[in-house]
């Protein structure tokens, strides 16, 4: 099956087999999309039952510290007196219900979450892109110079950062470069996304945001690039034993050409998937880093929800994070099929 490179090379046309006009590529894509939807459905169902095993009085958890009318409490009680499957059905009819309210913020959860999305996307997006570029570059160089000094230094350093809790590294950067321990002048802000009073929609505002994001983005970049560089190195070393590289060298190609044109594109395949698969962990990093640097994103909102505890908010954040990661995985799988036609068969 690995020999089949192009869908057109399949001996029997897909039409004759399935009776319908669907190519193997499309069928693969549809399968992947269906699989992702099933996973998301599982998350929603799981979400319902997970929060139903909460100890204590659910009503007081939902209404604690809020001015709730007696009628509303009776309404909630009536809902909870229904049999569990009844509750399940009404939950499944509208899992993203607009009526679910955050305990702490006293407004619908999705209104609380909305404005928090952008800071997180900015932070995580920038860090992921930087970590990918630098990590892949480092991985290629150390694999190509395997066993030499560059490789040894890089591998040791990346392994140390890979073993580090990201929030701890962030706190150390914060204490050194913002507070200014060890006589270093505190150059960077201690937290937040921008200086109060600065309009972030002007060029000066962008600079201000960039200045605020420097330390958190650096933290996440360094921690993530460690893993990407280790993966890229291993994958390129695997590839370097292959015969086609020997052929390329025997043809007299420059070392640089062999690396860039022949080895790296193939070694990129597993790395690409792993980078996307890793987005689940990236989300986790954002939670603690936003807490440490007080960035008003989804991560610090999650920490607020834990400390409440603000169960409705936590529930919605869980669904949102899972949905985002499932989507990223779907994109990774579709991209992978585009890059490597073998997986479609």
């Amino acid at each position: 099956m690995a020999l089949v490179a192009e869908p057109s090379a399949v001996p029997l046309p897909a039409r004759a087999r399935s009776g319908r006009r669907i190519g193997p590529g499309t069928r693969y894509a549809l399968n992947q999309i269906a699989g992702s939807l099933a996973t998301f459905l599982f998350v929603i169902v799981f979400n319902f039952f997970l929060f139903r095993i909460l100890p204590g009085d659910p009503i007081s958890l939902y209404t604690k510290g809020r001015d709730v009318s007696g009628a509303r409490i009776r309404e909630l009680q009536a809902q909870l007196h229904q049999p569990i499957w009844h509750q399940f059905i009404s939950y499944m009819r509208d899992p993203f219900s607009q009526t679910a309210e955050s305990v702490k913020y006293n407004s619908p959860v999705w209104d609380v979450i909305g404005p928090r999305v952008w800071p997180t996307l900015l932070l995580v997006g920038t860090a992921t892109i930087l970590a990918t570029l630098i990590g892949v570059w480092l991985g290629i160089r150390s694999a190509w110079k395997r066993g030499q000094r560059f490789d040894k230094v890089t591998t040791t350093t990346t392994l140390i950062f890979y073993s580090m809790p990201e929030f701890w590294f962030g706190m150390i950067l914060l204490i050194v470069f913002s507070v200014g321990a060890f006589g270093i002048p505190g150059f960077f802000p201690v937290g937040g996304l921008s200086t109060p009073g600065v309009d972030i929609n002007t060029p000066a505002g962008w600079v201000d945001v960039a200045w605020h994001l420097t330390l958190p983005v650096t933290t996440l970049t360094v921690i993530y690039l460690a893993e990407y560089s280790l993966i890229m190195r291993a994958s390129l070393i695997d590839e370097m034993g292959q015969d086609y590289l020997k052929t390329a060298r025997a043809k007299g190609l420059l070392d640089r050409m062999v690396r860039q044109r022949h080895a790296v594109p193939n070694a990129m395949l597993p790395t690409t998937t792993l980078i996307f698969m890793n987005l689940g962990f990236v989300v986790g990093g954002a939670i603690t880093i936003e807490d440490v640097f007080s960035i008003p994103g989804l991560g610090s909102l999650t920490v607020d929800a834990i400390n409440g505890p603000d169960i409705p908010l936590l529930q919605s954040l869980f669904v949102l994070f899972s949905g985002a990661v499932i989507l990223a995985n779907l994109i990774a799988n579709l991209l992978y099929a585009k890059l490597d036609p073998r997986v479609r068969t």
């Binding site: 689940g280 939670i287 529930q315 869980f318 899972s322 990661v325």
Partner: peptide, 13 residues
Amino acid sequence: VIPYLPLAIVMAS
């Protein structure tokens, strides 16, 4: 596929 830390957080809560 479910992101690890959010899942651990909700379970721990």
